[in-house]
Design a protein around this nucleic acid. Sequence first.
DNA 1: GTGAAAGCGCTAACAG
DNA 2: CTGTTAGCGCTTTCAC
Lengths: 329, 329
Amino acid sequence: MARAAGVSVGTVSNVFNRPDVVAPETRDRVQTAIDELGFVRNGSARQLRRGSITTVGALLLDIRNPFFTDVARGVEDRLTLDDHTLMLASSDDDPEREAKYLRLFEEHGVLGLLVVPTSRSTEHLVALHGRGVPVVLLDAPSSTPGMSSVSVDDVAGGELAAAHLLDQGFATITFLNGPHSIRQCEARRAGVDRAVRARGLDPADVVHEVPLASLDAVGGDQTLGAWIDAHGGAAPEAIFCVNDLVAVGAQRCLRKRGGNELVTGTAIVGYDDIDVAAELAQPLTSVRQPTHEMGYEAADLLLGRAAGGPVRHTIFQPELVVRASSLRS
Amino acid sequence: MARAAGVSVGTVSNVFNRPDVVAPETRDRVQTAIDELGFVRNGSARQLRRGSITTVGALLLDIRNPFFTDVARGVEDRLTLDDHTLMLASSDDDPEREAKYLRLFEEHGVLGLLVVPTSRSTEHLVALHGRGVPVVLLDAPSSTPGMSSVSVDDVAGGELAAAHLLDQGFATITFLNGPHSIRQCEARRAGVDRAVRARGLDPADVVHEVPLASLDAVGGDQTLGAWIDAHGGAAPEAIFCVNDLVAVGAQRCLRKRGGNELVTGTAIVGYDDIDVAAELAQPLTSVRQPTHEMGYEAADLLLGRAAGGPVRHTIFQPELVVRASSLRS
DNA sequence: GTGAAAGCGCTAACAG
DNA sequence: CTGTTAGCGCTTTCAC
């Protein structure tokens, strides 16, 4: 900065960091210069010298999924309390992108990281955490000592959904699911099986799992469409979608193919209970996850850890919200 | 790093930055040490020394609005081509938060910034831009020399929506709008008025603007509810919502109060054409904005600017997508 | 092909 | 109260 403001660098630094220690008139003079020149301290140099920082990074799977943005909102709300800031990035469930962003966040010395891990490889995360960057897993339980986590019991969620459909009297469940390499997908499937077995049935007879091309509306639409084509144009009687976006896509598919009757005649259960679930053509039965609280809790754990607090694993319980889409017509 | 890997710092640096200049065996030895120690270069020091960086920052208004996340997606898709990375933050239309994040991004020396400005104060932005951080305005036209922008003709959008409702034969339009301090809100209102005048009518007679508490579903629900209460329980004949989330809230309000008949009996037009608009109970007529392209174009302009390219102002045209919600029943 | 050394801009300790 | 100064960890000449 124009040290030509008449003072030394140390004084300018003091004006920024300990204004009270500078004589009022000097402070004013410096401040004026700062304003006039639009001087902004170099964050890199600053951080290089100090080490600490107030930014928290969050790495989500998909920025367009309301589930994640709701969680992010919870994170922000907690961070704001302590005047910390949040930077988001989305990995798209691509381990390479994940690694890239983790490195980036680490290089920039974030205070800590909230991560929804891609697939299952938590190796980089463990390493990262070992290197002293506090990491809190989001939407995934942690098995690494010292690493806190916030998750939802996905097995229970899958069970809730399947039990509901079975209780409605459906004999089969078509499960539009993602790859089992994604923990949530695998766990929800396990829950489905548990519900089936609890009724003395065999999952092999009852559950027809169909792998999704992508975990969004387009994926749901296409995947269900292909299924219907492969089954002589008949739609499944009951569908469980691994998330609400997929369910929206499934409804879209049914509407395109058979109009509203087909939509109302097919039972659908989604997952996440996104904001618009209740407003859909067929109000969607869904498994609700406490998104905002998850984010809030995760941020809380992270700040706690960064301050030397305890490790904790919070597991939230999902909840079934029944609406018209799954009721026998 | 354990320079005790047997070499000097300079060599380690070379291994990272110009591997070809290091003897293969030395390189391997260093690489092994790097892997074993999980060494990560200090980004702050690195950037302090080099100046440049590959991260682009984007400051959006609301991370939970699909409009913005779709735009963000377009940004990411463009940045990925050049191997740049994106960091997001959301200002919540709070100038203070905006300023905070702008400073943060600047301090960390981002390559450039994509900003959806809050309210109208582009002052900090101009200053920032003047200081050499390329800024591209998103969803707002720029009047600052040297600053590119990507926006959509909101006046045309408002006109499209209002013209459609008037053409359907409605005599009045209830416009659930945000504060005019938000440029988009003001512009859409201007468009509405233009459509009204074009038909030889007086906006004062035709348009009833109701200010929203918040620009989301909760805001739409509450605001419309209050309006209905204030009008003896009667719903408006035709509603124009400043965005689709608000429209979803309006439908929710109508459903709560009068069931589906009330929803189907009230014309609603939204704005943004979010992904689920077609899947709602009343498929929503909406003004579509080319979100993905906007983001892509903005990122493209930014990278172009950063490389000394030209200033450009891209203005996209909105498009009306007619669905059941606005058709006379 | 590798090492030594000079800063990048800042903060914090210390002198004055 | 203010100035001086020593690094923070890295990249980058410049010798060797």
